[in-house]
Simulated scan of single mutants.
Amino acid sequence: MVAIAVPLRAQPAPPDRPERERPVGTPQAVGAVHTLRQIPEACTRLEGEFTGQAAQPYRLRAVPAAVSCQPRARYLDAAQARPSAAAGWVLNDVIRVPDAACPSRQAVVRVWRQPAAGPAPARDGQGQARIYLEQARQQAAAGDIAALPRFSAQLATEGPACPP
């Protein structure tokens, strides 16, 4: 009997499971600003902070990563983007951060990714998708610019409210 090895192909994650798996984060104190995630394609860093306020217990901000960064994707506010699996967005990451003063309460940030529309760029002999400056200039002059992938993040707070 001969066994044939079949290479495993990357299967897309189910819509309710994120593409990236990560453990629950380190508990954070009220007022301590912390980085949740870098999104290098969009030149964006997600920062969070527990506020200690009942109306808005956690604050999420998208901060530009560097002024010299050239984005290959766009970051959109969740209210504007309204990400969902039904709208073609893919759940990319779920970040859970417990409150140090109240461990039963967690900030939950869901990072969504919407792939660029259209065909993927052609790959060269080394398997790399390369974009050459002169070709990109010609495509831009002709108005043939591909849509960029997009990212967005939704914030939720889970767990019971803790006494002050």
Rank of each mutant, 00 (worst) to 15 (best):
V2K: 11
V2P: 15
A3L: 12
I4D: 11
V6F: 07
V6I: 15
P7N: 04
L8G: 08
L8R: 13
L8N: 11
Q11P: 00
Q11Y: 03
Q11T: 14
P12Y: 09
A13D: 15
P14W: 02
P14S: 05
P15D: 05
P15F: 04
D16T: 12
P18K: 02
P18R: 03
P18D: 05
E19S: 15
R20K: 10
R20L: 08
E21T: 13
E21R: 10
R22K: 04
T26W: 00
T26P: 00
P27R: 02
A29K: 15
A29H: 08
V30K: 01
G31P: 01
V33C: 09
V33T: 15
T35L: 11
L36Q: 07
Q38T: 11
Q38P: 00
I39G: 02
I39L: 15
P40E: 03
P40I: 10
E41A: 15
R45D: 14
L46E: 06
E47R: 08
G48R: 00
E49A: 12
F50L: 04
T51N: 04
T51G: 07
G52E: 12
Q53M: 00
A55V: 13
A55E: 12
Q56Y: 10
P57S: 08
P57K: 09
L60H: 04
A62N: 10
P64V: 10
V67S: 12
V67E: 07
S68Y: 13
Q70E: 14
P71L: 08
R72P: 00
R72K: 13
A73L: 06
L76G: 09
A79M: 09
Q80M: 00
A81G: 05
R82C: 00
P83K: 13
P83N: 11
S84C: 09
A85Q: 08
A86I: 06
A87C: 10
W89R: 07
N92L: 07
N92F: 03
D93T: 13
D93M: 06
V94P: 13
I95N: 04
I95W: 00
R96N: 12
V97Y: 04
V97L: 01
P98C: 11
P98F: 07
D99Q: 13
P103C: 12
P103A: 13
S104H: 07
R105I: 04
R105A: 07
A107F: 02
A107I: 13
V108N: 02
V108W: 02
R110D: 10
V111A: 04
V111I: 06
W112V: 05
W112C: 01
W112A: 07
A116D: 09
A120F: 10
P121F: 05
R123W: 01
R123M: 00
R123D: 01
D124S: 04
G125F: 03
G125P: 01
A129R: 06
A129M: 08
R130G: 01
Q135C: 03
Q138H: 08
A140R: 12
A141Q: 14
G143Y: 05
D144I: 11
D144T: 15
D144A: 15
I145F: 03
A146C: 09
A147C: 02
L148P: 02
P149K: 03
R150K: 15
R150I: 03
F151D: 06
F151L: 08
Q154D: 14
Q154R: 06
Q154C: 05
E158A: 11
E158G: 05
A161L: 06
C162S: 10
P164S: 12
P164G: 10
